[in-house]
Design a protein around this nucleic acid. Structure first.
Lengths: 330, 330
DNA sequence: CCGCCGAAGGCAAACGCTTGCGATAAACTG
DNA sequence: CAGTTTATCGCAAGCGTTTGCCTTCGGCGG
């Protein structure tokens, strides 16, 4: 059951290991005649080069790590985001001929394991999703000196990133509500220790302030139940509100339920806008208007940035614009 | 920026490479005093063993591949299943100190890439999700002689697997409907080239036959729209039906929408049962009764089976039981 | 016809680690 | 106290590739 090595291929082809290696790696300095005999031997023996040996000498692995640093109940655990990102990254790396190792860092212990792994030279670069503002991992990985791209602005300096335009997206949502003639626009925020949630809140606040209106804020944590709860709170605080901007779709869905229970019609009495445009946003009744987060595009862009970095390319951050998808809820 | 090697650690500690290696690998045949001095050197230098070199000699990689063989629009693309499986596998491997490389095989080209990769000795074993009955990958991977576990029965012989009890789950659903007094129970199937879909249909048919009732079948493809469409078909074929068993939740959700549009009340006029119990099943109105597929447990079991195989354990298949979650739609 | 140049293939030295085996010294045994 | 067994450690041989450099050989120019 032993796999053949370069040596036996060389023997079979009647040439040296060097030549076989050169053929395998597509070098041009080898005579077509030798190339053919080598290829034949390779095929006959079913030879596949040993990865470890190759990595050892070339110091490349053609493998990138996707690290998702988030507590088990965190934001990225949110299914739609998780699979959109993972799948897009996987596809893009596949297309580039690279491999993906996926690491969920859900505890400090696993975070140090990630560091060790990266330090062990197993990967050529790291793609990092670390939404929490105080996460130590970005800085730790940056220190390793390996190419690194983050999925958002990090507290660590000089980490190239690809981020959504959260502020702009929130502004988009609020402007839309204003155009629809809404006067009292509330918001349900995400957990404010996340950059993402902060920025969405900022966008909401700034837009309202610019038009001389006041903010009505309830805190959520990006879960559906927190959205429902926050909505109850808002109705209590300000029964006359006529619109809600939720910082993500799950909370918007929760809010919809609360509104229905409270007998408010959507959108007649209260308009609702979500954020992310997850699949489920189009299932709800009424279907949810939402700011589309181009997660897949973001992931693709992040992979490209990283691959560029590995080849000595530029480190300029990328900001992804997002667009509003108008449905029945506004 | 060069990382230190065993050699420099040994020099610093004033011992041989062997001793350092033994300390690193936690062998017991090393004197505590030496152990300490080595550990200190390791810490001071920030030494981390090089993975490639280690793999090369030990022939282990502590890395397992999760291969998802499915066309881009396939079943597993279904977000909830995808992320549940990926996340559970990742957690379990993390706990076992192993690494996960994720490979989506969405084309024949990428399927051969998977084979090459596995043959290249990059992984110690493979976890395979290949639902399509005609997928050649199970057999191809089995031929490699590496430990392999599939997420369902495969056409390839002798591949250990961990499968859901699809037949039993469907029976559970139908029995429940019968107990609720339903007489005309229809079903919406998944794409029948999938084992999964076949088995669920079998379970439905067998249960009805055993109680002397006839089957009412419409074909779907596991997508929400196909569910809606199939439901329309069913209403046309048999306007008097009083219950529907959908082979997955997405189709059940589609069916709910069609029923509402058709003015049928759920569950008063028509009861609906789904399969999988995805997150969204509890969001719908009315909330969906569903057969819970313990995907996470299944994934965990698969990982354990694989790890066992690697250590020479048994290859007995595992069948996961599932339970019915009763909600408002029945 | 001779010398030189370039192309192409082979040799052998790494790459960084593990591990069987022998060496050494300490600890026993009788 | 001599003969042995034990506990530790070091030596060096790989593991399977890649690659710098040297060798060889055919071809070309002078």
């Amino acid at each position: 059951m032993k796999r053949p090595t370069l040596e036996v291929v060389a023997a079979r082809a009647g040439v040296s290991k060097s030549s076989v290696s050169r053929v395998i790696n597509g070098e041009t300095t080898v005579a077509p005649q030798i190339r053919d005999v080598v290829m034949r031997a390779v095929r006959e023996l079913g030879y596949v080069p040993n990865g470890a040996a190759r990595n050892l000498v070339t110091r490349r692995t053609d493998t990138l790590a996707l690290v998702i640093s988030d507590p088990p109940q965190g934001v990225v655990s949110d299914d739609p985001l998780f699979s959109a990102v993972v799948r897009a990254v996987s596809r893009e790396l596949e297309a580039a001929g690279k491999r993906l190792v996926l690491m969920l860092a859900e505890s400090d212990q696993s975070r140090t394991r990630v560091e060790q792994y990266v330090a062990g030279g197993h990967v050529d670069g790291v793609l990092l999703v670390a939404l929490h503002g105080t996460d130590p991992l970005p800085a730790a990985l940056a220190r390793q000196g390996l190419p690194l791209v983050s999925f958002n602005r990090t507290s660590a300096q000089d980490v190239p990133y690809v981020a959504l335009d959260n502020t702009g997206g929130a502004a988009l949502a609020v402007c839309h509500l204003l155009e629809r003639g809404r006067r009292r626009i509330a918001t349900i925020t995400g957990p404010l220790e996340l950059h993402e949630a902060r920025e969405r809140l900022d966008g909401y606040r700034r837009t309202l302030r610019d038009t001389g209106r006041r903010s009505i804020v309830a805190l959520g944590d990006f879960t559906r139940v927190s959205g429902a709860e926050a909505m109850r709170q808002l109705l209590e605080d300000d029964p006359d509100l006529d619109a809600v901007f939720a910082a993500n779709d799950l909370m918007a869905i929760g809010a919809l339920r609360t509104l229905r229970q409270a007998g408010r019609r959507v959108p007649e009495d209260v308009a609702v806008v979500g954020f992310d445009d997850i699949e489920a946003a189009s299932y709800t009744t009424p279907a949810l208007t939402s700011v589309r987060s181009p997660m897949a595009n973001q992931a693709t862009a992040a992979v490209h940035l990283l691959l560029g970095l590995i080849n000595g390319g530029p480190t300029d951050p990328v900001i992804m614009p997002n667009e509003l998808v108008v449905r029945e809820s506004t």
